[in-house]
């Protein structure tokens, strides 16, 4: 998983021994603090509800940095989606030796057409994100595309510029 935004670039390699949790290493190039470090990350599926036309998920996430035990993060994120609608949220608290800060977001989306298995799938989304480091809410459009094992999310805002997320499942 590759992510790039105004605050950092990161590459996250993870393995899921079961659908309940995944473990991985995230390499971060932190633009705000001008630092490079890695996180050992763990994500746990706390709750999932499957219905015929929807799925709801609630995840816990945490990570400890290669900088030391006083640099870590924890948080929660969740989503509810049908084949037409998507809603998601996230909250992440990061503690470092010098500064503690939180990030939160809300995301809503709609699929303009319903694709079948193997088609190119498209979501039009709006994301509202708050970062304590800048103490600003940014609301911006996001285009999410996926086909096969590849997924890409592209957002753009004047304040934080590009917010790009790419994922490939092996």
């Amino acid at each position: 998983m590759l992510k790039s935004n105004a605050m950092q670039n990161s590459a996250y390699y993870h393995y899921s021994p079961s659908y309940k949790f995944s473990i991985g290493i995230e390499q971060v190039k932190d633009k705000y603090f001008d630092a490079d470090y890695s996180y050992l990350r763990l994500t746990y599926l706390l709750n999932r509800k499957n219905t015929q036309h929807s799925q709801r998920n609630l995840y816990l996430q945490s990570g400890i940095s290669s900088d030391g035990v006083d640099h870590y993060f924890y948080g929660v994120h969740g989503d509810w989606e049908t084949r037409r609608l998507f809603s998601g949220f996230g909250y992440k608290e990061t503690q470092t030796a010098s500064l503690d800060y939180a990030e939160k977001y809300l995301q809503l989306g709609v699929a303009p057409y319903i694709g079948e298995y193997g088609d190119l799938h498209t979501w039009l989304m709006v994301k509202a994100k708050h970062d304590e480091l800048t103490n600003e809410w940014n609301t911006y459009p996001v285009l999410k595309l996926f086909k096969g094992n590849a997924l890409m999310e592209i957002g753009y805002t004047d304040a934080s510029e590009w917010d790009i997320h790419f994922m490939y499942r092996f």
């Binding site: 999932r48 499957n50 929807s54 799925q55």
Partner: peptide, 12 residues
């Protein structure tokens, strides 16, 4: 199958 709402998730 219930909960199969997304192509990306059904790949597994």
């Amino acid at each position: 199958v219930s909960g199969m709402v997304c192509d990306f998730c059904a790949r597994g």
